[in-house]
Write a protein that binds this DNA or RNA. Structure first.
Lengths: 265, 265
DNA sequence: AAAATAAGTTTCACATATTGGAACCTGCAA
DNA sequence: TTGCAGGTTCCAATATGTGAAACTTATTTT
């Protein structure tokens, strides 16, 4: 598959372990891996000594390792968008009192990188970090609409176009029309296209150069509101998204000199 | 070094990029990497195609990739301790109104996996994920005290014993005494051993079998309180830690059958 | 504008790490 | 004892990775 040399294979194994929602045994992994027993065994060993995986000798199971958590912390922290956007998410969340999502494109999918929930703010790890489809979510469509046209065919061809609901857009051509509409309007809706009863408004977050950095959305239910009312929030959301976009663009590393790299033990 | 074949080198490079707090150029990385130009170049390319790193062609810089964020989500989510402990951290945080830390041992260091801050609860990624020394933090000492004796010499020999403050414990022998004291008392203090003015109480989180799962601490400042007052919190913290330990132990995977692995696109 | 320098990329003969079939250990059940 | 499944190790064949050096851009300097 994606196998780019040994590293690619090792990372595949990492994904495999991550895919199980629980500690996995060697034989579980073997059954779901394309690699022969000895090869998988060695890959696992390597990952364990690298502390990307942890091996529990009592139960002889593999789980994801703490080095991953450390790397991930760094990943989130130095992604330009998420840390900058956070205070703005707080503001928006407080103002609208509805679920707020921050997402980025990952491959051809949507990756939720942060989230706010009205009543009790849910710490991000729990809910963010998940991936979702691009073609039937508000944030996905908002980003697609502002992507360079050259990239679109490639990305659209990777969508699964599964009809989650009767309103799901299920073809690239229909999507192209929708995207034109979104560009004209400046924001995107999700009109129960992914889950029945769930609707949202989403706006893209653009760099000052116009590049898509991510998307911001406010989600609610048809029981509580409707698209018309959500649309009224769009100017405010757009304003916040523009601020985030500008701050992120400006946060362009003013040529550090010192090397703040971790010292080796 | 840690170099376990190609995978080890690739992960070293990943750490290197993570070590910079900002997007890094090829030459920056080259200057701080033990690998020759061509080798580093290829490793970077591999990591980029694997989406563990992202390359920005405009500025020709490398940053950590989104695949890492996804993996990290899974890592945190299926680590037995952190998700189970979260609601308890919320409770403790609300009760004591001080900073609360949840930590685990990583190698011979302390990894903070979750955190609560009194005023505005800070979502974990931002502040947690950091590593700290074991020998001069409350959580570190609490865990050391309950580790199997056989593991102790190895771990203690890896401590740097840097005297952050005048009160820092700076030798393995002194630490052994301190650990005996901690076991007798059932909880650990950090008496300004890491940062002046910062004090904390910490208790270990143990499985019902007695294995160290992590540690829980409440941190404050000498300006606001003192060790005596912090000690009064110990019974409550211990109680919560015991609950977390029990729940974590009980949450022992009841032999799943189906394979809930992510489908490949 | 030309020359000099630096930054990034590719090449290729060579060394090494990876491969995976098969043999080999366990522990456990019949 | 035998059988068997999960797990671990071997080792020759070979695919992969290596890195000095050559080569292309960019970016200065003269």
């Amino acid at each position: 598959m994606s196998g780019d040399g040994t590293v690619g294979k090792a990372l595949d194994v990492l994904d495999l372990v991550a895919g199980f929602g629980h500690p996995a045994r060697f034989s579980d992994l073997l059954a779901h891996s394309p690699y022969p027993k000895a090869t998988l065994y060695r890959l696992l060993q390597t990952l364990v000594t690298q502390r990307m995986l942890a091996f529990n000798p009592d139960r002889s199971t593999y789980t994801l390792g703490l080095r991953l958590v450390r790397l991930a912390h760094a990943a989130w922290d130095q992604s330009a968008l998420a840390p900058i956007a956070r205070p703005h998410l707080d503001v928006l969340s407080a103002e609208v009192g509805e679920t707020v999502h921050l997402a980025q494109m990952d491959h051809a999918q949507v990756l939720y990188v942060d989230k706010r929930n009205a009543r009790d703010p849910i710490p991000m790890y729990s809910q963010a970090g998940k991936v979702g489809p691009a073609y039937c979510t508000g944030v996905g469509k908002a980003m697609l609409a502002y992507l360079p046209e050259a990239n679109l065919p490639g990305i659209l061809s990777q969508q699964s176009w599964h009809a989650f609901t009767a309103k799901t857009i299920t073809s690239a051509t229909a999507m192209m029309q929708e995207l034109t509409l979104i560009r004209a309007r400046g924001f995107a809706f999700d009109d129960e296209e992914h889950e029945p009863g769930i609707i949202c408004v989403a706006v893209p977050i653009l760099s000052t150069g116009g590049a898509v950095l991510g998307a911001l959305s406010v989600t609610s239910t048809t029981a509580r509101t409707n698209l018309g009312k959500l649309a009224e929030l769009a100017p405010r959301i757009t304003q916040i998204a523009r601020t985030i976009g500008q701050e992120t663009t400006n946060w362009r590393f003013p040529e550090e000199t010192a090397h703040p790299n971790r010292e080796r033990a």
